[in-house]
């Protein structure tokens, strides 16, 4: 295919990606070093109230925003260097907390709290998703042919459901005296409230994520299981391998590329965990990196959006993505070079 034809085919797609993905990245990078604020000026205002004999007049200085001709607030954009990053990271408080050796103090700072949750969320759900997905795939592969269709249908439901709605549906089962909380209270005989402390919310979030993603892993593993070489399995049986050894030494190595694929997709998706925070309404207890950026961007009570802090936190989130992708990308690069020679 000639370059010109190739460019014509790929052009629109690349143009959209550059305009709406690459360009915003650059602008976020620039914004993170700037602050846009309304220009303020000090005005002396004399207010007079009618009084007996003479008027009572008070003079005071007020800070008011400067208005332009159209009556809008004028804003100025200043370069502030790393100020926004400092606001997000709050390193002084962080080092103070480290100096005290107090983990709880570190967890009081929004960014570090969000980072801690995002990382533990990503790393803890990964083995669970792969394990549960593989278990379902093996069980379905074991089941009678006629019930496989309905089971796949039911399994797809958690995967396809809107993430916010999915987490809400679990939230409603546990909120207040929801039926599952009531059931646990009956078993344990104690009063349980699932949304009053951070660790129970986190447990529910882990559960939700595994529930939501395991079907994806299951479908892929199931497709992979259809291509397992039966001859290898049979020779393993003849060699006297037990069921567990067959799983360990024949099936899992066969599925290894799929496991890597799922792990990569899962790491990418988990790192941007966000909908759970909205669905479980856990802002007060548990937040994630993406939610932190989102929160800076939503208008506060005065209608202001903290764009520069949002940009700084977005750039800090990006650093994590770089770490996440560096290994797989290096591998792909090596494969590509290897295949070229």
């Amino acid at each position: 295919m000639k370059f010109k034809t190739f460019a014509a085919f790929v052009g629109p797609s690349v143009f959209m990606m550059l305009l709406f993905i690459a360009a915003p990245l650059v602008s976020v990078f620039i914004q993170s070093f700037q602050v846009t604020q309304p220009i303020l000026q000090q005005v002396e205002v004399e207010t007079c109230t009618p009084g007996f004999l003479t008027q009572t007049c008070v003079t005071e200085t007020k800070t008011v925003p400067v208005l332009d001709d159209a009556g809008k607030t004028m804003t100025e954009t200043r370069w502030v260097g790393l100020q926004s990053y400092r606001n997000v990271l709050q390193m002084d408080k962080f080092w103070e907390a480290v100096g005290n050796g107090s983990w709880n103090d570190i967890m009081q700072i929004d960014f570090w709290k969000a980072l801690r949750f995002t990382l533990s969320f990503t790393l803890l759900t990964l083995p669970l998703v792969i394990g549960v997905g593989l278990a379902i795939a093996l069980a379905v592969n074991n089941a009678t042919r006629s019930i496989r269709g309905p089971i796949i249908f039911i399994s797809l439901l958690p995967f396809i459901i809107t993430p916010v709605i999915g987490s809400l549906s679990i939230y409603w089962l546990f909120v207040g005296d929801g039926i599952l909380t009531a059931m646990m209270e009956r078993w344990t005989g104690t009063n349980i409230s699932m949304f009053a402390q951070a660790w129970t919310i986190e447990l529910l979030m882990y559960f939700y994520r595994v529930w939501h993603v395991a079907p994806f892993a299951f479908v892929i593993f199931y497709a992979g299981l259809q291509t397992v070489n039966m001859d290898t399995l049979e020779s393993a049986v003849i060699d006297g391998a037990s069921r567990w050894e067959r799983l360990r030494h024949v099936i899992v190595p066969h599925l290894m590329p799929l496991i890597v694929f799922i792990a990569l997709i899962h790491l990418m998706d988990c790192y941007r965990v966000f909908e759970e925070i909205v669905g479980f309404r856990s802002q007060a207890h548990v937040i994630s990196l993406q939610w932190l950026t989102y929160d800076f961007m939503t208008p506060d009570d005065a209608g202001n959006r903290a764009i520069s802090r949002a940009s700084a936190s977005a750039m800090l989130t990006m650093i994590g993505i770089v770490f996440l992708l560096i290994l797989p990308l290096r591998r792909t690069w090596r494969d590509h070079k290897g295949s070229a020679h």
């Binding site: 990245l25 976020v28 914004q31 977005a314 996440l324």
Partner: peptide, 14 residues
């Protein structure tokens, strides 16, 4: 792999 909030931070002021 980019989190969507990173991109939205770029769109919003524009």
């Amino acid at each position: 792999a980019l989190p969507h909030s990173v991109l939205v931070a770029g769109y919003l002021p524009v």
